[in-house]
Amino acid sequence: MTLNIKWLGVDFGQCLMDPRGLRNPLMFGEIMRDLGRPEEIAERIHRYRRMKEKYQNYSLMKEGHRPEIREYVFGNDDEAWELFSEYEQRLLMPADGIAETLAWLREQGIICDVVAELKKTLGPIGSDHVTMFLQRQGLSQYFDYFYSPSGRVRLSDGKADFGCQGKDKTSGTMYDYLLEDLARRGINIDECAIIGDKLSTDIEPSRRRGFHTIQFTGYIDMGPSEYAEYRVESFPQVKEFVKGVK
């Protein structure tokens, strides 16, 4: 079954970005050895894990409580905090085959945007972990816009607008906004698809609004869903059924 589209919205965490390289013993080992205080590695990891038990997942902790990581895990040590942000980026990996697939999609005339849940205030490109990752991995060139609850950024020049500020994927308000925004960009809903791993944020609310949906199971497989029209384990698999609308 072929999926003819003009636009693909790509989720960030555990989809476009593969966090498998980001292991705590490695990251905290690198930071504390760089600082010349390897004896603190175990304590810092333990604090980081205790904090995770408070918030129950690392994504929530890192997106919504970064100042607390700085304070509780690193005791407001500026140098350690800078290294944390640096190593966090250095150890994150792009999903297998993502660059070649994005290049292929662009060749098909398909517009690609990032749709993520970043809640921090938008600054210049490269000042948040999503655009920093895209730049560092050479992936910015494949995307036109980055949509998040903090606003929309045009990746070619960093121009931001705040029409989608406060909209999010879980409640579906981000998809309502995308419908309007994509219509303004001359793209119809039946020519749009979302690819992501989480059923509750990427698949179900977008499908309910008429987007085509591709469930990415390469990192987390949340099981089949009636709302997921396609399932792929890797990005290159997308090339087997997606075609650009001429």
Partner: peptide
């Protein structure tokens, strides 16, 4: 195994 124990402190004991 990770055993988290609720606590009156800011963070659970782990």
């Amino acid at each position: 195994g990770r055993l988290a124990v609720d606590s009156d402190e800011d963070y659970p004991e782990l």
